[in-house]
Design a protein around this nucleic acid. Structure first.
Lengths: 218, 218
DNA sequence: TACAATGATTAGACTAATCTAATTATATTT
DNA sequence: AAATATAATTAGATTAGTCTAATCATTGTA
């Protein structure tokens, strides 16, 4: 099997490839992994030897098919355990990340699948992030940022791009939850503050930063 | 926190102290840990530095109060996760040990306690082993080996001393389950084969080895 | 009580994952 | 295109946990 460290590198590379494009830079990975650049170079060389990444000196690197499979498997574990913690143990959505970071490294495909069944084959984790199925297939979401909507448009709130407890807590306090309908009533020209309507009922004023962290399905 | 390796040493020492008396030998620990003796000496020196064990050169070693607390905490985790795997995910009692060996190292007292509550504060794991409470208190059991009973005596089957899948499977096939009443009908003098009666109904013939691996409450 | 057998420790080496300091490649700017 | 700034790699060291081979300590027995 792979070490926890390797698995964490794979996950981090996967996420960087998703957002920043195919090829990942040493420094970017060092930053998200919280290590210094030479550690990344060393690790990447070892992982290239195991055919988990392709690596060309000073040219960056990307996951192989094998590396991608491992990464998606870990993401599947992570998100299923998050559902377990929230749905079954009563944790709040802003409390589960660190625990899931530990649980995701439990090595047993069978356990993952039994957990999936126990939870009723959920499609998304408590933050709306999609859960890959047993074959590693991750449904492509059509969600867009609330900040991309024009005045008058609306969508269903299905996910966040900021997973920090601080932001999640803010949403709780503001009464904004997954599944709510968000309608853009006005956008302030000066600073792009959004005035929105929740579930066709009460209104709310949110900053551009917040609108830029909310995913909606039109 | 402590590393997984340290935690596994602590657990192993705890179990050896329980069965073989207070002071543990290097070679005994090496055997159960599956490492060679010098590794144990090295590790024990490090752990003595952390006040987890007391250690005197060539005299053996034992857990400190602190070491004992950590060990009991891990055993609590292990047994609660076993209950989860059997009761909630549908695993058989002979399949859960290796998974629980991984899950026991998840570091979160809060998670352990929430899991405990979710499971309904179970008193014992699927093999009948008692689960320490949140304060680390492990109820002293009054169970005795079936092999210590005389003809005519009976007891309730509450645990096993052999946790191997092979033995657990044998019990399944023989129809012997936790909670059954076992009454000793006869003991063959020649080889101490036991003839027993299950739940005051059907009889069964079991070897001395089996009778020596079953715990009962008289 | 001395000697052999067993058990424990030291010495020296290895791997994975990290670090700092120094060097080399790549990219940017004039 | 040369000079500079930034990013990546190499070199050499460190720690945890392990190993083998060699040595030292303990115990039981003749």
């Amino acid at each position: 099997m792979h070490s926890f460290t390797e698995e964490n590198y794979l996950k981090a590379i996967y996420k960087l490839q998703e957002t920043n494009g195919e090829v990942v830079a040493t420094s970017a990975l060092a930053q998200v992994m919280g290590v210094h650049a030479p550690s990344v170079t060393d690790m990447l060389k070892r992982m290239a030897g195991k055919k988990l990444v392709t690596y060309q000196k000073s040219k960056g690197f990307k996951l192989t098919e094998k590396g991608k499979q491992v990464a998606v498997g870990i993401i599947r574990n992570h998100r299923l355990w998050e559902v377990f913690l929230v749905d079954k143990l009563g944790y709040k959505w802003d409390e589960v990340h660190d625990l899931a970071e530990q649980l995701e490294h439990i090595h047993s495909e069978d356990l993952t699948n039994k957990l999936d069944k126990f939870l009723g084959f959920p499609k998304a984790d408590p933050h709306g992030d999609p859960i890959p199925d047993a074959n590693g297939v991750l449904p492509k979401s059509k969600a867009v940022l609330l900040s991309s909507l024009k005045v008058g448009e609306q969508g269903t709130f299905t996910g966040v791009t900021d997973h920090t407890p601080a932001f999640l807590n803010y949403l709780d306090k503001a009464g904004i939850s997954l599944g709510n309908t968000l309608k853009v009533k006005a956008i302030e020209e000066f600073d792009q503050t959004y005035t929105i309507q929740l579930n066709d009922k009460k209104g709310a004023v949110i900053s551009h930063k917040v609108a830029n962290s909310l995913l909606v399905n039109k």
